[in-house]
Amino acid sequence: MRIGELATRAGVSVRALRYYEEQHLLTSERSPSGQRHYADSAVDQVRLIQQLYAAGLPSKSILALLPCVVDGEATPELLDRLSAERDRIDRQIGDLVSARGRLDTVITNATANLLTGEQCRPR
């Protein structure tokens, strides 16, 4: 598939796909006229790259992790890195859950104040 179709199917910009190629996270074949062509599996790979970026991994870490994720190839060092990234994400999830809990408390208190006629004013 061509770059525009991959961008549409994966829900990313063409610019993002070019960046992924520059970072060696994604590969394409070139037609005689120079157009990029991607395998159908590129859609899932782009979605994975997006998830890893959203989880806070930099492109260098994603590049190191992709062979394990895509091909199942893993060294003990890579498994340690994967475990460390998972632990970091778990901490991030805990922090987000805590922040959500605090927001829930603020919302509950503000709703109760509105019902009793009190107002929460910014400081």
Rank of each mutant, 00 (worst) to 15 (best):
L79E: 12
S59K: 04
C68A: 15
P67I: 09
A64T: 09
L114H: 05
P122T: 10
R100L: 11
L63K: 13
D90K: 08
A110K: 08
E85V: 09
L82R: 06
T75K: 10
A74W: 02
R88V: 08
V97G: 03
T116H: 03
G94P: 03
E73L: 14
R86K: 13
T108V: 07
A64L: 05
A84C: 08
C120Q: 07
Q92Y: 00
L96G: 04
A110P: 04
D87Q: 11
R88Y: 04
V97A: 12
I107T: 15
V106L: 14
A112S: 10
I93A: 11
S98L: 05
E77P: 00
S83D: 10
Q119K: 13
L103A: 14
R86E: 10
R100C: 10
V97H: 04
R88G: 15
A110T: 14
L63V: 08
D90P: 02
D95C: 02
E77V: 07
R102S: 11
L66F: 02
V70R: 08
L66S: 04
L79W: 02
S98P: 01
R121H: 10
C68Y: 00
L65R: 01
L115T: 05
E118H: 12
S59N: 06
C120R: 03
V70G: 01
E85S: 11
R100G: 07
I62D: 01
T75S: 15
T105V: 11
S59W: 01
S59H: 06
A99Q: 13
S61G: 09
R86G: 10
I107L: 15
A84G: 11
V106T: 14
R81G: 15
L79D: 08
L78Q: 08
A110F: 01
D104C: 06
N109S: 14
V70F: 00
V106Q: 06
L82T: 09
I107V: 15
D90I: 09
L79N: 05
T75L: 08
S98Q: 11
T111R: 05
C68F: 01
C120V: 11
D71K: 06
P122S: 06
Q119H: 13
D104T: 13
C68G: 14
P67G: 11
